[in-house]
Design a protein around this nucleic acid. Structure first.
Lengths: 227, 227
DNA sequence: GCTCCAACTTGATGTGAATCAAGCAACCGG
DNA sequence: CCGGTTGCTTGATTCACATCAAGTTGGAGC
Protein backbone atom coordinates (compact mmCIF):
# COMPACT_ATOMS: atom_id res chain seq x y z
CA UNK A 1 0.00 0.00 0.00
CA UNK A 2 1.66 3.24 -1.11
CA UNK A 3 -0.11 5.24 1.54
CA UNK A 4 1.26 3.03 4.28
CA UNK A 5 4.77 3.39 2.90
CA UNK A 6 4.40 7.13 2.88
CA UNK A 7 3.28 7.14 6.47
CA UNK A 8 6.08 5.00 7.76
CA UNK A 9 8.52 7.26 6.00
CA UNK A 10 7.06 10.27 7.80
CA UNK A 11 7.19 8.37 11.06
CA UNK A 12 10.79 7.36 10.66
CA UNK A 13 11.68 10.98 10.08
CA UNK A 14 9.87 12.23 13.17
CA UNK A 15 12.33 13.11 15.91
CA UNK A 16 10.48 10.85 18.27
CA UNK A 17 10.69 7.62 16.34
CA UNK A 18 14.13 8.43 15.08
CA UNK A 19 15.26 8.37 18.71
CA UNK A 20 13.11 5.43 19.75
CA UNK A 21 14.48 3.14 17.06
CA UNK A 22 12.92 0.72 14.56
CA UNK A 23 12.11 -1.93 17.13
CA UNK A 24 10.04 0.35 19.32
CA UNK A 25 8.41 1.86 16.32
CA UNK A 26 7.42 -1.56 15.01
CA UNK A 27 6.08 -2.55 18.38
CA UNK A 28 3.97 0.56 18.81
CA UNK A 29 2.69 0.56 15.27
CA UNK A 30 1.44 -3.01 15.11
CA UNK A 31 -1.60 -2.50 17.35
CA UNK A 32 -2.20 1.04 16.10
CA UNK A 33 -4.47 2.26 13.35
CA UNK A 34 -4.99 5.46 11.46
CA UNK A 35 -8.06 7.60 11.29
CA UNK A 36 -9.14 10.18 8.77
CA UNK A 37 -11.08 13.01 10.37
CA UNK A 38 -12.76 16.17 9.13
CA UNK A 39 -12.00 19.57 10.58
CA UNK A 40 -13.48 20.44 13.97
CA UNK A 41 -13.60 16.89 15.25
CA UNK A 42 -12.94 16.34 18.93
CA UNK A 43 -10.24 13.70 19.39
CA UNK A 44 -10.54 13.66 23.15
CA UNK A 45 -12.09 15.86 25.75
CA UNK A 46 -10.69 17.74 28.71
CA UNK A 47 -11.32 15.59 31.78
CA UNK A 48 -11.33 12.23 29.98
CA UNK A 49 -8.85 9.51 30.80
CA UNK A 50 -6.56 8.82 27.85
CA UNK A 51 -6.94 5.61 25.85
CA UNK A 52 -4.77 6.57 22.91
CA UNK A 53 -1.73 8.52 22.02
CA UNK A 54 -2.07 10.55 18.87
CA UNK A 55 0.46 11.08 16.15
CA UNK A 56 -0.50 13.56 13.49
CA UNK A 57 0.15 12.22 9.99
CA UNK A 58 -1.40 15.08 8.06
CA UNK A 59 -3.19 18.29 8.92
CA UNK A 60 -3.08 19.92 12.32
CA UNK A 61 -4.59 19.42 15.71
CA UNK A 62 -5.11 21.98 18.45
CA UNK A 63 -4.87 21.48 22.18
CA UNK A 64 -7.89 23.37 23.38
CA UNK A 65 -8.38 24.30 27.03
CA UNK A 66 -11.58 25.54 28.61
CA UNK A 67 -11.63 27.51 31.86
CA UNK A 68 -14.29 27.38 34.55
CA UNK A 69 -16.24 30.20 32.91
CA UNK A 70 -16.42 28.28 29.64
CA UNK A 71 -13.99 30.49 27.72
CA UNK A 72 -11.69 28.54 25.39
CA UNK A 73 -8.21 28.92 24.03
CA UNK A 74 -5.68 26.96 22.01
CA UNK A 75 -2.63 26.03 24.05
CA UNK A 76 -0.63 24.55 21.21
CA UNK A 77 -0.98 23.47 17.61
CA UNK A 78 0.56 20.19 16.50
CA UNK A 79 1.34 19.48 12.85
CA UNK A 80 2.35 16.51 10.72
CA UNK A 81 4.92 14.19 12.30
CA UNK A 82 4.23 15.32 15.85
CA UNK A 83 3.38 12.96 18.63
CA UNK A 84 1.36 14.79 21.14
CA UNK A 85 0.63 12.52 23.88
CA UNK A 86 -0.59 14.93 26.39
CA UNK A 87 1.54 13.57 29.24
CA UNK A 88 -1.77 12.52 30.66
CA UNK A 89 -1.05 9.14 29.12
CA UNK A 90 2.12 8.76 31.17
CA UNK A 91 0.67 9.95 34.41
CA UNK A 92 -2.62 8.18 33.87
CA UNK A 93 -4.39 11.40 34.74
CA UNK A 94 -7.30 13.04 32.95
CA UNK A 95 -6.46 15.35 30.06
CA UNK A 96 -6.34 18.98 31.05
CA UNK A 97 -7.23 20.07 27.54
CA UNK A 98 -9.18 18.75 24.59
CA UNK A 99 -7.81 17.74 21.21
CA UNK A 100 -9.59 19.30 18.26
CA UNK A 101 -8.77 18.96 14.57
CA UNK A 102 -8.11 22.35 13.01
CA UNK A 103 -8.03 21.03 9.45
CA UNK A 104 -8.89 17.72 7.84
CA UNK A 105 -6.54 15.36 9.56
CA UNK A 106 -5.04 11.90 9.40
CA UNK A 107 -3.97 10.63 12.83
CA UNK A 108 -2.27 7.52 14.03
CA UNK A 109 -3.96 6.15 17.12
CA UNK A 110 -1.60 4.32 19.47
CA UNK A 111 -3.28 2.40 22.30
CA UNK A 112 -2.18 3.90 25.61
CA UNK A 113 -1.63 0.56 27.35
CA UNK A 114 0.69 -0.68 24.61
CA UNK A 115 2.57 2.56 24.95
CA UNK A 116 2.82 2.29 28.71
CA UNK A 117 4.13 -1.25 28.45
CA UNK A 118 6.60 -0.06 25.86
CA UNK A 119 8.17 2.65 27.97
CA UNK A 120 8.36 0.27 30.94
CA UNK A 121 10.34 -2.28 28.93
CA UNK A 122 12.24 -0.53 26.19
CA UNK A 123 14.91 1.91 27.40
CA UNK A 124 15.31 3.45 23.95
CA UNK A 125 11.62 4.25 23.81
CA UNK A 126 11.63 5.59 27.30
CA UNK A 127 14.62 7.73 26.43
CA UNK A 128 12.85 9.07 23.34
CA UNK A 129 9.83 9.83 25.44
CA UNK A 130 11.87 11.78 27.92
CA UNK A 131 13.38 13.85 25.17
CA UNK A 132 9.97 14.50 23.70
CA UNK A 133 8.65 15.66 27.05
CA UNK A 134 11.67 17.85 27.58
CA UNK A 135 11.21 19.47 24.18
CA UNK A 136 7.54 20.01 24.81
CA UNK A 137 8.27 21.59 28.17
CA UNK A 138 10.60 24.00 26.45
CA UNK A 139 7.95 24.87 23.89
CA UNK A 140 5.63 25.85 26.67
CA UNK A 141 8.30 27.86 28.46
CA UNK A 142 8.92 29.69 25.24
CA UNK A 143 5.23 30.45 24.92
CA UNK A 144 5.00 31.74 28.47
CA UNK A 145 7.90 34.09 27.82
CA UNK A 146 6.21 35.17 24.61
CA UNK A 147 2.97 35.98 26.37
CA UNK A 148 4.65 37.80 29.22
CA UNK A 149 7.21 39.85 27.37
CA UNK A 150 6.27 40.31 23.75
CA UNK A 151 3.49 42.40 22.26
CA UNK A 152 1.02 40.96 19.75
CA UNK A 153 2.85 41.99 16.58
CA UNK A 154 6.08 40.41 17.72
CA UNK A 155 4.35 37.18 18.66
CA UNK A 156 2.80 36.93 15.23
CA UNK A 157 6.16 37.62 13.59
CA UNK A 158 7.83 34.88 15.60
CA UNK A 159 5.04 32.45 14.86
CA UNK A 160 5.47 33.00 11.14
CA UNK A 161 9.26 32.94 11.27
CA UNK A 162 9.33 29.65 13.15
CA UNK A 163 7.46 28.07 10.28
CA UNK A 164 10.05 29.04 7.72
CA UNK A 165 13.21 26.89 7.41
CA UNK A 166 15.88 28.42 9.69
CA UNK A 167 18.48 29.39 7.13
CA UNK A 168 16.09 30.52 4.39
CA UNK A 169 15.63 34.27 4.05
CA UNK A 170 12.13 33.71 2.70
CA UNK A 171 9.45 31.05 2.44
CA UNK A 172 5.75 30.30 2.39
CA UNK A 173 3.85 29.65 5.60
CA UNK A 174 0.64 27.65 5.38
CA UNK A 175 -2.16 29.05 7.43
CA UNK A 176 -4.59 26.19 6.87
CA UNK A 177 -6.00 26.34 10.35
CA UNK A 178 -8.79 28.83 11.04
CA UNK A 179 -7.69 32.33 11.96
CA UNK A 180 -9.49 32.07 15.25
CA UNK A 181 -7.35 29.07 16.22
CA UNK A 182 -4.10 30.79 15.31
CA UNK A 183 -5.18 33.89 17.18
CA UNK A 184 -6.02 31.81 20.26
CA UNK A 185 -2.67 30.01 20.07
CA UNK A 186 -1.02 33.44 20.05
CA UNK A 187 -3.13 34.78 22.89
CA UNK A 188 -5.06 37.41 20.98
CA UNK A 189 -8.42 37.88 19.27
CA UNK A 190 -9.00 37.14 15.57
CA UNK A 191 -9.49 40.87 15.01
CA UNK A 192 -6.08 41.69 16.42
CA UNK A 193 -4.45 38.91 14.39
CA UNK A 194 -6.04 40.22 11.22
CA UNK A 195 -4.85 43.75 11.83
CA UNK A 196 -1.40 42.57 12.79
CA UNK A 197 -0.98 40.53 9.62
CA UNK A 198 -1.97 43.59 7.63
CA UNK A 199 0.55 45.68 9.50
CA UNK A 200 3.31 43.17 8.74
CA UNK A 201 2.33 43.21 5.09
CA UNK A 202 2.36 47.01 5.02
CA UNK A 203 5.85 46.87 6.50
CA UNK A 204 6.88 44.68 3.57
CA UNK A 205 7.83 41.67 5.68
CA UNK A 206 5.18 39.31 4.32
CA UNK A 207 2.72 38.97 1.48
CA UNK A 208 -0.72 37.56 2.19
CA UNK A 209 -2.68 35.29 -0.07
CA UNK A 210 -5.66 33.01 0.47
CA UNK A 211 -4.48 30.38 2.94
CA UNK A 212 -0.85 31.34 3.28
CA UNK A 213 1.54 34.07 4.23
CA UNK A 214 4.70 34.46 2.17
CA UNK A 215 7.59 35.61 4.25
CA UNK A 216 9.32 38.05 1.97
CA UNK A 217 11.98 39.30 4.34
CA UNK A 218 12.78 37.20 7.36
CA UNK A 219 15.17 39.75 8.78
CA UNK A 220 12.57 42.49 8.53
CA UNK A 221 9.99 40.19 10.07
CA UNK A 222 12.17 39.52 13.09
CA UNK A 223 13.53 43.02 13.36
CA UNK A 224 13.94 43.89 17.00
CA UNK A 225 12.63 47.43 16.64
CA UNK A 226 9.29 45.79 15.89
CA UNK A 227 6.76 46.77 18.47
CA UNK B 1 24.74 15.17 61.23
CA UNK B 2 21.22 16.27 62.13
CA UNK B 3 21.08 18.59 59.15
CA UNK B 4 21.80 15.74 56.81
CA UNK B 5 19.06 13.61 58.32
CA UNK B 6 16.59 16.44 57.90
CA UNK B 7 17.47 16.81 54.28
CA UNK B 8 17.17 13.18 53.42
CA UNK B 9 13.78 13.14 55.02
CA UNK B 10 12.66 16.00 52.81
CA UNK B 11 14.13 14.24 49.82
CA UNK B 12 12.39 10.99 50.52
CA UNK B 13 9.10 12.85 50.70
CA UNK B 14 9.59 14.64 47.38
CA UNK B 15 7.40 13.11 44.68
CA UNK B 16 10.44 12.63 42.52
CA UNK B 17 12.55 10.53 44.86
CA UNK B 18 9.53 8.73 46.19
CA UNK B 19 8.99 7.42 42.66
CA UNK B 20 12.65 6.89 41.88
CA UNK B 21 13.26 4.68 44.91
CA UNK B 22 15.96 4.48 47.57
CA UNK B 23 18.58 2.96 45.31
CA UNK B 24 18.45 5.72 42.75
CA UNK B 25 18.32 8.32 45.47
CA UNK B 26 21.41 6.89 47.13
CA UNK B 27 23.21 6.78 43.82
CA UNK B 28 22.43 10.36 42.91
CA UNK B 29 23.12 11.72 46.35
CA UNK B 30 26.56 10.25 46.89
CA UNK B 31 28.38 12.55 44.45
CA UNK B 32 26.14 15.51 45.22
CA UNK B 33 26.65 18.32 47.66
CA UNK B 34 24.59 21.11 49.11
CA UNK B 35 25.12 24.79 48.86
CA UNK B 36 23.85 27.63 50.96
CA UNK B 37 23.21 30.76 48.95
CA UNK B 38 21.99 34.27 49.68
CA UNK B 39 19.05 35.82 47.88
CA UNK B 40 19.62 37.05 44.33
CA UNK B 41 22.36 34.58 43.50
CA UNK B 42 22.49 33.28 39.95
CA UNK B 43 22.59 29.47 39.97
CA UNK B 44 23.01 29.19 36.24
CA UNK B 45 22.63 31.48 33.30
CA UNK B 46 20.46 31.37 30.22
CA UNK B 47 22.61 29.99 27.40
CA UNK B 48 24.95 27.95 29.59
CA UNK B 49 25.30 24.21 29.24
CA UNK B 50 24.08 22.46 32.38
CA UNK B 51 26.58 20.83 34.73
CA UNK B 52 24.24 20.27 37.64
CA UNK B 53 20.69 19.49 38.45
CA UNK B 54 19.26 21.47 41.31
CA UNK B 55 17.01 20.34 44.07
CA UNK B 56 15.71 23.04 46.35
CA UNK B 57 16.07 22.10 50.02
CA UNK B 58 14.94 25.39 51.49
CA UNK B 59 13.86 28.75 50.14
CA UNK B 60 12.77 29.35 46.59
CA UNK B 61 14.37 29.68 43.22
CA UNK B 62 13.01 31.44 40.16
CA UNK B 63 13.40 30.47 36.55
CA UNK B 64 14.16 33.79 34.96
CA UNK B 65 14.01 34.32 31.21
CA UNK B 66 15.39 37.28 29.31
CA UNK B 67 14.18 38.22 25.84
CA UNK B 68 16.26 39.73 23.04
CA UNK B 69 15.43 43.25 24.20
CA UNK B 70 16.77 42.49 27.68
CA UNK B 71 13.40 42.47 29.43
CA UNK B 72 13.11 39.79 32.09
CA UNK B 73 10.38 37.69 33.61
CA UNK B 74 9.96 34.78 35.97
CA UNK B 75 8.66 31.68 34.25
CA UNK B 76 8.23 29.58 37.34
CA UNK B 77 9.04 29.56 41.03
CA UNK B 78 10.31 26.35 42.63
CA UNK B 79 10.10 25.77 46.34
CA UNK B 80 11.46 23.30 48.88
CA UNK B 81 11.49 19.68 47.74
CA UNK B 82 11.32 20.51 44.05
CA UNK B 83 13.79 19.17 41.57
CA UNK B 84 13.99 21.57 38.76
CA UNK B 85 16.32 20.25 36.31
CA UNK B 86 15.49 22.43 33.44
CA UNK B 87 15.15 19.61 30.90
CA UNK B 88 18.24 21.13 29.41
CA UNK B 89 20.15 18.52 31.38
CA UNK B 90 18.36 15.71 29.59
CA UNK B 91 18.64 17.16 26.15
CA UNK B 92 22.16 18.41 26.70
CA UNK B 93 21.08 21.77 25.36
CA UNK B 94 21.79 25.22 26.77
CA UNK B 95 19.37 26.53 29.40
CA UNK B 96 16.71 28.76 27.99
CA UNK B 97 16.31 30.55 31.28
CA UNK B 98 18.48 31.47 34.27
CA UNK B 99 18.07 30.21 37.80
CA UNK B 100 18.00 32.92 40.45
CA UNK B 101 17.50 32.56 44.18
CA UNK B 102 14.50 34.57 45.34
CA UNK B 103 15.21 34.05 49.04
CA UNK B 104 18.12 32.64 50.99
CA UNK B 105 18.34 29.14 49.69
CA UNK B 106 19.82 25.72 50.36
CA UNK B 107 20.18 23.66 47.19
CA UNK B 108 21.37 20.19 46.46
CA UNK B 109 23.69 20.12 43.48
CA UNK B 110 23.54 16.88 41.51
CA UNK B 111 26.23 16.45 38.84
CA UNK B 112 24.56 16.25 35.44
CA UNK B 113 26.69 13.40 34.17
CA UNK B 114 25.87 11.20 37.14
CA UNK B 115 22.24 11.97 36.52
CA UNK B 116 22.48 11.16 32.84
CA UNK B 117 24.13 7.84 33.60
CA UNK B 118 21.45 7.14 36.14
CA UNK B 119 18.53 7.59 33.81
CA UNK B 120 20.27 5.49 31.17
CA UNK B 121 20.66 2.57 33.58
CA UNK B 122 17.95 2.70 36.18
CA UNK B 123 14.41 2.26 34.84
CA UNK B 124 12.83 3.44 38.09
CA UNK B 125 14.78 6.67 37.94
CA UNK B 126 13.97 7.13 34.31
CA UNK B 127 10.32 6.52 35.08
CA UNK B 128 10.38 9.09 37.89
CA UNK B 129 12.01 11.54 35.54
CA UNK B 130 9.30 11.06 32.95
CA UNK B 131 6.63 11.71 35.51
CA UNK B 132 8.41 14.81 36.70
CA UNK B 133 8.64 16.13 33.17
CA UNK B 134 5.02 15.34 32.53
CA UNK B 135 3.96 17.18 35.67
CA UNK B 136 6.11 20.15 34.79
CA UNK B 137 4.64 20.26 31.29
CA UNK B 138 1.22 20.42 32.84
CA UNK B 139 2.25 23.25 35.11
CA UNK B 140 3.28 25.25 32.10
CA UNK B 141 0.08 24.43 30.22
CA UNK B 142 -1.84 25.63 33.22
CA UNK B 143 0.11 28.86 33.25
CA UNK B 144 -0.48 29.46 29.55
CA UNK B 145 -4.21 29.02 30.06
CA UNK B 146 -4.00 31.39 33.01
CA UNK B 147 -2.27 34.06 30.99
CA UNK B 148 -4.58 33.73 28.03
CA UNK B 149 -7.92 33.49 29.74
CA UNK B 150 -7.80 34.95 33.21
CA UNK B 151 -7.48 38.58 34.26
CA UNK B 152 -4.89 39.68 36.80
CA UNK B 153 -7.07 39.46 39.89
CA UNK B 154 -8.10 35.91 39.14
CA UNK B 155 -4.50 34.85 38.52
CA UNK B 156 -3.47 36.23 41.88
CA UNK B 157 -6.36 34.47 43.58
CA UNK B 158 -5.42 31.13 42.03
CA UNK B 159 -1.79 31.62 42.95
CA UNK B 160 -2.69 32.15 46.57
CA UNK B 161 -5.24 29.36 46.65
CA UNK B 162 -2.79 26.83 45.20
CA UNK B 163 -0.53 27.47 48.16
CA UNK B 164 -3.16 26.58 50.72
CA UNK B 165 -3.80 22.89 51.46
CA UNK B 166 -6.59 21.67 49.14
CA UNK B 167 -9.23 20.80 51.68
CA UNK B 168 -8.57 23.64 54.10
CA UNK B 169 -10.97 26.55 53.98
CA UNK B 170 -8.27 28.90 55.19
CA UNK B 171 -4.51 29.06 55.64
CA UNK B 172 -1.42 31.22 55.58
CA UNK B 173 0.55 31.75 52.40
CA UNK B 174 4.18 32.74 52.68
CA UNK B 175 5.22 35.48 50.34
CA UNK B 176 8.92 35.37 51.12
CA UNK B 177 9.99 36.06 47.58
CA UNK B 178 10.15 39.69 46.44
CA UNK B 179 6.89 41.16 45.16
CA UNK B 180 8.49 41.84 41.81
CA UNK B 181 9.24 38.15 41.36
CA UNK B 182 5.73 37.06 42.22
CA UNK B 183 4.33 39.71 39.91
CA UNK B 184 6.58 38.51 37.09
CA UNK B 185 5.59 34.89 37.67
CA UNK B 186 1.97 36.02 37.35
CA UNK B 187 2.60 38.08 34.25
CA UNK B 188 1.93 41.51 35.69
CA UNK B 189 3.79 44.48 37.15
CA UNK B 190 4.50 44.89 40.88
CA UNK B 191 2.08 47.85 40.90
CA UNK B 192 -0.75 45.73 39.61
CA UNK B 193 0.03 42.93 42.05
CA UNK B 194 -0.01 45.38 44.93
CA UNK B 195 -3.36 46.84 43.90
CA UNK B 196 -4.81 43.40 43.31
CA UNK B 197 -3.80 42.12 46.74
CA UNK B 198 -5.46 45.18 48.26
CA UNK B 199 -8.60 44.51 46.26
CA UNK B 200 -8.71 40.91 47.50
CA UNK B 201 -8.29 42.12 51.06
CA UNK B 202 -11.05 44.67 50.61
CA UNK B 203 -13.25 41.86 49.35
CA UNK B 204 -12.54 40.01 52.59
CA UNK B 205 -10.91 37.01 50.97
CA UNK B 206 -7.46 37.50 52.48
CA UNK B 207 -5.69 39.43 55.19
CA UNK B 208 -2.28 40.88 54.52
CA UNK B 209 0.60 41.04 56.94
CA UNK B 210 4.34 41.59 56.54
CA UNK B 211 5.56 38.65 54.50
CA UNK B 212 2.41 36.62 54.22
CA UNK B 213 -1.17 36.60 53.06
CA UNK B 214 -3.72 34.84 55.20
CA UNK B 215 -6.44 33.26 53.16
CA UNK B 216 -9.52 33.95 55.18
CA UNK B 217 -12.11 32.60 52.83
CA UNK B 218 -10.97 30.21 50.16
CA UNK B 219 -14.38 30.01 48.53
CA UNK B 220 -14.59 33.79 48.28
CA UNK B 221 -11.07 33.88 46.92
CA UNK B 222 -11.89 31.48 44.13
CA UNK B 223 -15.34 32.83 43.49
CA UNK B 224 -16.05 32.63 39.78
CA UNK B 225 -17.74 35.99 39.60
CA UNK B 226 -14.34 37.42 40.41
CA UNK B 227 -13.14 39.66 37.61
C1' DG C 1 -26.97 30.60 -11.01
C1' DC C 2 -28.61 32.41 -6.36
C1' DT C 3 -29.05 32.05 -1.12
C1' DC C 4 -27.31 31.39 3.07
C1' DC C 5 -24.03 30.96 6.48
C1' DA C 6 -19.52 30.95 8.46
C1' DA C 7 -15.09 32.99 8.41
C1' DC C 8 -12.71 36.91 8.08
C1' DT C 9 -11.89 41.93 7.85
C1' DT C 10 -12.55 46.73 8.99
C1' DG C 11 -13.93 50.50 11.87
C1' DA C 12 -15.37 52.88 16.32
C1' DT C 13 -15.25 52.71 21.14
C1' DG C 14 -14.06 50.93 25.78
C1' DT C 15 -11.05 49.21 29.39
C1' DG C 16 -7.56 46.46 32.08
C1' DA C 17 -3.29 46.84 33.05
C1' DA C 18 1.17 49.31 31.96
C1' DT C 19 3.67 53.28 32.59
C1' DC C 20 5.10 57.32 34.80
C1' DA C 21 5.80 59.65 39.03
C1' DA C 22 5.74 60.48 43.82
C1' DG C 23 5.49 59.02 48.50
C1' DC C 24 6.75 56.05 52.41
C1' DA C 25 8.53 52.35 55.38
C1' DA C 26 12.31 49.32 56.58
C1' DC C 27 16.91 48.47 56.75
C1' DC C 28 21.91 49.30 56.36
C1' DG C 29 26.47 51.20 57.31
C1' DG C 30 28.66 55.00 59.42
C1' DC D 1 20.83 58.70 65.16
C1' DC D 2 20.85 59.83 60.39
C1' DG D 3 21.44 59.98 55.15
C1' DG D 4 20.91 56.71 51.63
C1' DT D 5 19.40 52.89 49.28
C1' DT D 6 15.94 49.32 48.27
C1' DG D 7 11.32 47.50 47.98
C1' DC D 8 6.69 48.44 48.13
C1' DT D 9 2.55 51.18 47.62
C1' DT D 10 -0.49 54.80 45.85
C1' DG D 11 -2.20 57.97 42.44
C1' DA D 12 -2.68 60.02 37.57
C1' DT D 13 -2.32 59.13 32.92
C1' DT D 14 -1.69 56.42 28.70
C1' DC D 15 -2.06 52.73 25.51
C1' DA D 16 -2.34 48.11 23.49
C1' DC D 17 -5.62 45.25 22.84
C1' DA D 18 -10.46 43.69 23.59
C1' DT D 19 -15.05 44.41 22.59
C1' DC D 20 -18.85 45.70 19.91
C1' DA D 21 -20.77 46.35 15.48
C1' DA D 22 -20.97 46.40 10.54
C1' DG D 23 -19.41 45.13 6.33
C1' DT D 24 -17.25 41.72 2.89
C1' DT D 25 -15.89 37.39 0.91
C1' DG D 26 -16.21 32.73 -0.29
C1' DG D 27 -17.98 28.33 -0.27
C1' DA D 28 -21.72 24.64 0.23
C1' DG D 29 -26.10 23.33 -0.83
C1' DC D 30 -30.09 23.59 -3.77
Amino acid sequence: MPDRALNSDLLRRSPFFAAAGEAAMERLLRPSFTQQLPRSTVLFDQGEVPNFLHLVLAGSVGLQARDEAGAETIVEIFGAGELFLAPAAILGLPYLASGVTLTDVRVLMIPADVFREGIAQDPALSRAMMELLARHWRLMVDQVVDLKLRPAERRVARFLARRVPEEAGAGAVDLQEPRGAIAARLGMTPETLSRTLNALEARGAIRLSAKRADVVDRALLMQTGLR
